[in-house]
Each structure stands twice: as structure tokens, then as C-alpha cells.
Simulated scan of single mutants.
Amino acid sequence: MSVKWEKLEGNEGVLTVEVDAEKVNEGLDAAFKKVVKNIAIPGFRKGKVPRVIFEKRFGVEALYQDALDILLPEAYAKAVEEAGIEPVDVPKIDIEQMEKGKSLIFTAKVTVKPEVKLGQYKGLEVEKMDDTVTDEDVENELKRLQENYAELVVKEDGKVENGDTAVIDFEGFVDGEPFEGGKAENYSLEIGSGTFIPGFEDQLIGMQAGEEKEIEVTFPEEYHAKELAGKPATFKVKVHEIKEKRLPALDDEFAKDVDDEVETLEQLKAKIRKRLEEMKKNEAEAALRDAVVEKAAENAEIDIPEVMVKNETDRMLREFDQRLQMQGLNLELYY
């Protein structure tokens, strides 16, 4: 097999491929074995027609398309590899010669990956991210761990405050009618978490256990349920129980609960500092690499084929559709 690659303007080129006659005849043989199974001629059992009779009746040309279907995929793949190109789209194939006993000659117009022309990339200056770990960073990480190990304790007396967890019943109404998904019982809601519609959690602050109240809110314009977006709603709410977060003391016992490899709080702090230093160092190195690449890319020239943009857009859309389907939605409902 011979292959010739001719680069055209932009990101296109033409492959000219010649497949040996021997290989063509093998393709015709395979094509005959495939089609003869469905051929019935008087005097012969179905699928048992001799090759010479078939060609006399239908002509060898009747096998050409099936033979091409067999020969082209392999020949094109080998030609691409031999030419050292990277196609980004389905080629446009033109058959120039297809005949029994002769070589197969075809051309393939191909769109390939674009070549990048690098501009100035030596001596680039970028700002390195600060990877210093401060005492404040360590304290913030300790506070996060303290929050994670906090206990929820029932408030015997008192009112709902920001940060508390209120156990509530609620039912929502729009235009005086209840709506789907707007009702729940014994729901644990952390006040200030932003879980509910803006304004809902704020209006629970100050309520006491056993108290009932009507809360007025408005659904955001960009709310996922279009039938509710932008509409005012009324929620009937009852508070059953109020729980406050009780933080553990930051001492040696807390340190041992968090990490069984340490004995004291100071050892835990040292371990946190070391972990944060490694993390910040890795982040700084990654940020530096990204900044250098971005700076170099600004000086580069590249002509991206439209088909690559379309293929990438289609791929992202398919992935998004799959994620929506996992949530019981689809693109039609989403848009």
C-alpha cells in the first residue's frame, strides 16, 4: 500500500492511498461470501451459487460496494498512521479506481489537528503564589475540625438563633394552592445554611419550640422549577425542636479524638501546619505552571477548525444531558 499526504490551506489536506490488487481481490472474496448467503438463483440452493455464476448474472461490480466497506476502514486507518496525521473529523472519501484485478485508489480529504506556532516563551515572567502558612491558617483549620466534631444539643428553653438547627414542619402555598415538593415534617434545617429560599431561614430566627408561623417569601427568578420562578409563596411553619451546636474544647483530648497519632494539641497543630505547607506548595507549583502556560499561550498562534469546536460543544452537551438524566431531568425540561 502506498500513501501520499498533501497539506492544503488551513488545517485540511488530502490523503491519496493505493491498495494492492491482491488486497482488493481478498476484499472481493470476502464481499462475495457475505452477499451470496442471501442470493437465490433457480437451479441452486440459496447461498450456494458459484462465484462464476454470480458474476455472470449480476456482474462483479455488484460486489464493489461491499468490498469497499471491508477494505476502506483498514486502509484509511493504516494510511493515517503512515502519514503521521491526527484527523479531527470524518474524512470525505472519493474512489478514483475500483476494479477487479487492479489496485484500489482513493483520496480522503481530512481535517487535522491544528499546528501551534509558538511565540516568545523563553524568559517569561509570572508572579509566584505565596505558599506561606500562617498561624491564622492553622487556627482556621482547627476551627473547621472543631465544627466537624460539634454535637447538636436540644435547647430546653430559648429561641432559634443563627447557627441553630430547627426541626420543623412546613407546607408551602402559591396563589393559595399547595405545590409539589413544598411540604415536609420533622425537617432538620440549619439556620444560615442557605438551604431554603432566600428569606425563609431568617424568618425562623426568634421562634420558640411549639410556635407556629406563616412565612412570606418569593421564589428566585432563576428557580429551577419554572412554574414557581419569581412567584410569592406562603409557608405555614411549626417549630418542634431547637438544637444548638456545642463545640468541643480545644485541648489534648480533642487532639487525640481527631488524630490517634498525636497525644497533644500542639502536636496536632504541628501536623496541621505540615499538611497545609505541603498543600500550599503543591497549589503554588500548579498555579505557577498554569500561569506560565497561559502566558506562553498568549504569544502563540493557532487556527482551530470549526469542527473541533462543534465536536467539543456536542461532547459537553452530551455529558450535561447525562448528568441531568441522573437527576430525573433532560435537556428539554431544563431549557
Rank of each mutant, 00 (worst) to 15 (best):
S2M: 01
L8C: 12
G10M: 03
E12N: 14
L15F: 05
E26H: 12
E26P: 08
L28P: 00
F32V: 08
K34N: 12
V36N: 09
N38A: 12
I41D: 10
K46I: 05
K48L: 13
K48E: 15
V49W: 09
V49C: 13
R51N: 09
E55N: 08
K56S: 10
F58V: 01
V60W: 02
L68C: 08
L71I: 13
A79H: 05
E82K: 15
I85W: 06
P87F: 05
P87H: 05
I93T: 12
D94Q: 14
Q97A: 11
Q97L: 11
K100M: 10
S103C: 06
S103K: 14
I105N: 04
A108V: 08
T111C: 14
K113D: 06
K117C: 02
Q120V: 12
Y121K: 02
G123N: 13
G123W: 09
M129R: 14
D135M: 06
V138Q: 03
E139D: 14
E147A: 12
L152Y: 11
K155D: 06
G163Y: 08
V167I: 13
V174S: 04
V174F: 09
D175P: 02
E180G: 00
G182P: 00
Y187E: 08
F196V: 00
Q203G: 07
I205K: 07
Q208V: 13
G210C: 05
I215G: 06
V217T: 11
F219S: 02
Y223W: 11
E227T: 13
E227R: 11
K231F: 04
P232R: 00
K238F: 12
V239N: 02
R246D: 01
L247A: 04
P248W: 01
A249E: 15
D257L: 15
V258I: 13
D260E: 15
E261R: 07
E263W: 02
T264F: 07
E266L: 02
E266V: 01
Q267D: 07
K271P: 03
R273M: 04
R275W: 09
E278P: 02
N282Q: 15
A286I: 07
A287F: 05
D290M: 06
E294T: 09
K295Y: 03
I304C: 00
P305W: 03
E306I: 03
K310G: 10
K310F: 08
N311S: 10
T313A: 15
D314S: 09
D314K: 13
Q327A: 12
L331H: 05
L333F: 08
